[in-house]
Design a protein around this nucleic acid. Structure first.
Lengths: 134, 134
DNA sequence: CTTGACCCTGACATTAATGGCAGGGTGTAT
DNA sequence: ATACACCCTGCCATTAATGTCAGGGTCAAG
């Protein structure tokens, strides 16, 4: 199939499909006129790429294990686990940082509410940690 | 004081101090030689700017209420609350999204652990599409 | 008068995936 | 042959604050 059809089938823009190729994630054949010709398997391949992108992995990381996971179960690919673990650490750190900012914002917002009557920051902290715990 | 000293006192790089000025957050006088001359109050002003930046607000948002909060308690500045609330909504959404990704990663990581004892993955396809769910 | 520590402006780079345009070729149906 | 849908490459833009040059003034001390 040609790039337009693959785009329609996968939801990836034509621009993105060309980008994945430039990043070495997919290698369509070329017809004599220069058009890309994708095999039917490309559809699954693109969906797999997009899934890993949604997990926040980079094209470079995906390139490191894509061939493996396309041909066998993910759990057989030893390259995948460290990538997951490193990404997970990133995510946890980001969440922690965002939580700090959020708590600060919540404090400051609640001090606006308190300002119209009297007492300042009551013991919002306990309520907050309950509500936001996860 | 000149820009180098203000930088040392506040921890903001010289580049950043110039940037804050370009964004309309601070307006030092100019000496006849073109050098910026900052009043002593600028030190507090820069610290205030940096604090709001740490909360994730943009220079544009900060510009919208900086004059007010510099001259009276924050809770008297009605421009601030909606900015906080909007930022808080962003943060909550980001946290929720990161949590989804994290949960997915945790699942996938734990499936590696289980795989060492379990039988093979016969149908790679089905497993993968199941786990693709967010 | 030179050195060295300051200061100035302006411009480009950074990150990563994607959008979008310009300028052009291909293929098919009318 | 002409319209139209499709494809190609290459390039610039995006976000927002900051880093980092280049090329050049200012000024005090020696």
């Amino acid at each position: 199939m040609k790039i337009g059809e693959l785009s329609r089938r996968t939801g990836a823009s034509i621009r993105s499909l060309r980008y994945y190729e430039a990043q070495g994630l997919i290698a369509p054949l070329r017809e004599s006129n220069g058009y890309r010709e994708y095999s039917p398997m490309a559809e699954d391949q693109v969906r797999t790429i997009r899934f890993y992108l949604q997990l926040g992995l980079t094209t470079e990381q995906i390139a490191g294990f894509l061939n493996c996971v396309l041909s066998r179960p993910e759990t057989f690919c030893t390259e995948v686990l460290p990538v997951y673990e490193s990404k997970l650490a990133d995510i946890e750190a980001q969440i922690a940082q965002l939580k700090r900012i959020r708590d600060n914002l919540v404090d400051r917002i609640s001090s606006f509410r308190g300002e119209s009557e009297q007492g300042e920051g009551v013991s919002t902290r306990d309520e907050r940690s309950e509500r936001y715990e996860f």
